[in-house]
Nucleic acid binder design. Sequence first.
DNA 1: TTCATAATTGAAATGATTACTACTATATCA
DNA 2: TGATATAGTAGTAATCATTTCAATTATGAA
Lengths: 134, 134
Amino acid sequence: MITTISKFLKEKGITPSVQRIEIMRFMLTHKTHPTVDDIYRELSKSIPTLSKTTIYNTLTLLCDKGAVISFTTDDNTTHYDGVVEEHAHFKCKNCGQIFDVPIPMINNSEPQGFDIQNVEVTYYGICPKCTEYQ
Amino acid sequence: MITTISKFLKEKGITPSVQRIEIMRFMLTHKTHPTVDDIYRELSKSIPTLSKTTIYNTLTLLCDKGAVISFTTDDNTTHYDGVVEEHAHFKCKNCGQIFDVPIPMINNSEPQGFDIQNVEVTYYGICPKCTEYQ
DNA sequence: TTCATAATTGAAATGATTACTACTATATCA
DNA sequence: TGATATAGTAGTAATCATTTCAATTATGAA
């Protein structure tokens, strides 16, 4: 498993290290759209010397190389996502959970004259579970 | 003009005050998607005692009452918009300007089972002017 | 006018992120 | 093998947006 992730990082042009492998593994095994703090809280259990700076550096690198994506929500903190295929997010205003949802685009409706590199689509509302118990 | 904005605020259920009127006026006359700091820098020229807390409070109130909308971008700061009709934004990675663009949704492609209250759509890329001079 | 309430202010606290410096691991080459 | 350059990591301090909170000021009704 370590070799798999190590190989994956090399393919992306990233020199592997213990920290980078564990952060990348975390992103691939957790579909919770974590923040730097979420990752720090979890991974510092197994790597007690891990610093937040390393997590910031690593995630910026992973983003640049296309291994993860980042997006922001109304909490004004950056969330990261190991799913890099284009998709939208739904954030529940009740429980705070962020869900992956299909992106509802039709090609010819994009703004003309702009060189679009990426899109962030975030829905806000109440998720099915919270709707049920209200 | 003051009476117009004052009347507008009352219609929205907001008690007018000098500060609220000037902040609302700023939002109606500036289509630049300002941050709290942008507004503070401009309005403190004419209202030297104006505090940022008041701007935060007022914008939160204006949002709640539907007089303005807010959204976040990759700079992790909240931007405000006096245009409340549903639309998307384009942020230029070169000059940083934010543009209003049409929202590219088709109704029946929205995620099912979610109670959607609002959507934020933000494109990132290079704006026409920056494309031209590159 | 008086009083209750709402609005505003400014300072301090918080939380995410960046900057910076020192330390450590890794790779290279003589 | 060992010296050395370089990349990566850690930890602290600084910065910036935002929130909290207590004190002051303005407003409106009796």
